[in-house]
Computed example of a mutant assay.
Amino acid sequence: MSLAARPQPPASASPVGVFDSGVGGLSVLGALRAELPRERFVYFADTAHAPYGERGDAYVTEHSRRVVDTLVREHGIKALVVACNTATTAAIHVMRAENPELPIVGLEPAIKPAVAGSATGHVSVLATRGTLASAKYAALRHTFPHPERIRSVPCDGLVAAIERLDELAIDQLCAHYMALAGPFGGDAGETDTVVLGCTHYPLLQDRLRRHAPSAVRFLDSGVPVALQTRRLLAAAGLLQERARPLDDAWVALRSSGDAAVLQSAAARWLGLRPSDLLPDRPQASTA
Rank of each mutant, 00 (worst) to 15 (best):
R210F: 13
D171F: 03
C174K: 00
P183Q: 12
T193K: 03
E190P: 04
D206A: 15
Q172G: 08
A179H: 15
G185R: 03
L204P: 01
C174H: 00
F218W: 15
F184A: 03
G185K: 02
A175W: 12
C198R: 00
F218P: 00
V194W: 01
L196P: 03
A179K: 14
R217N: 12
G182I: 05
A179G: 15
Y201C: 02
G189D: 11
G186Y: 04
E190F: 07
F184G: 02
R209Y: 12
G185A: 08
S214Y: 06
C174V: 10
Y177T: 01
H211S: 13
F218D: 04
D187G: 14
A215G: 09
G189N: 12
Y201S: 02
G186E: 09
E190W: 06
H211W: 15
H211Y: 15
D206I: 09
G182R: 06
Q172L: 11
R207A: 09
R210V: 13
A212W: 01
H211L: 13
D171N: 12
P202W: 03
Q172Y: 05
F218C: 08
T191V: 15
D206M: 14
G197S: 11
A188L: 13
A179T: 14
R207H: 11
Y177R: 00
D187E: 13
P183I: 07
R217K: 15
E190G: 03
I170K: 00
H176F: 13
R210W: 14
R217P: 05
E190M: 13
V195L: 11
F184H: 03
G186H: 08
L208M: 13
H200M: 07
